[in-house]
Amino acid sequence: MNAFPPAPRETLLEIEDLHVAYGRAVVVHGAALRVRAGEFVTLLGRNGAGKSTTLHAMSGLIGKRAGRVRFAGQDITQSSPRDIVRAGLVQVLEGHRVFGPLSVEDNLLIGTYARTPRGDRARLDGIYALFPEMAERRRQPASRLSGGQQQILAVAQGIIAQPRLLVLDEPSGGLAPLVVDRILDVAASLCRDGVAILLVEQLVEKALARADTCYLMETGRVVHEAPAADLLGSDILHATYLGGHVT
């Protein structure tokens, strides 16, 4: 929570009227949200509400049926995932998806690949300073790391890609609370350095404690937008997750 409400900032990411379908099942219908530069936004909602699908479509990883995505003043609706990453919209997928046979260091270099096809070794030191345990294991194959370390590596892969907006999709999935706090604190500190964060998280209170703005999704739509502080402990949240419906 920021002590002072931030001054109005330029819009970095804007999703309008996004529709996504898998085959005949329309999963997202008309999602809309906005992230400003340097803002920490969290997108909450029950499983199956369409959060991950929205993120995948936004990053160009799956097709969109309709809608518009703008990032840093450019229309990226039709852009390739590669161009989207190069523009600075970097997504860390759910479920610590690292490249098992490659070493930790090679995983990190893959993170720099979009901008520097030969791999940007100069950026490694910064990451190792941030995550010393990665430095210790730089030569180990990623498959030998624990689940929590793999998730840290996945987030590190996102950070080393020099994002203007870092998207984290459920970094907590299946991890111990300490690791989760660690990852979310790193995200928050990145945010203070000017990187915008879009976080999808099921640990609602942890997410809200760090976010500026919160969006709530339900059955493929964004149904609520509010400053994160207002939502913390509110009935709407409890209703969304443990019963009843947001109206």
């Binding site: 907590s172 640990l203 609602v204 209170e205 949240l237 409890h238 997750y241 443990l242």
Partner: peptide
């Protein structure tokens, strides 16, 4: 179960 504090905690992530 719906009132269990631990359940509420994992769902809301205190």
């Amino acid at each position: 179960v719906s009132r269990d504090p631990e359940v509420v905690r994992v769902y809301l992530g205190a």
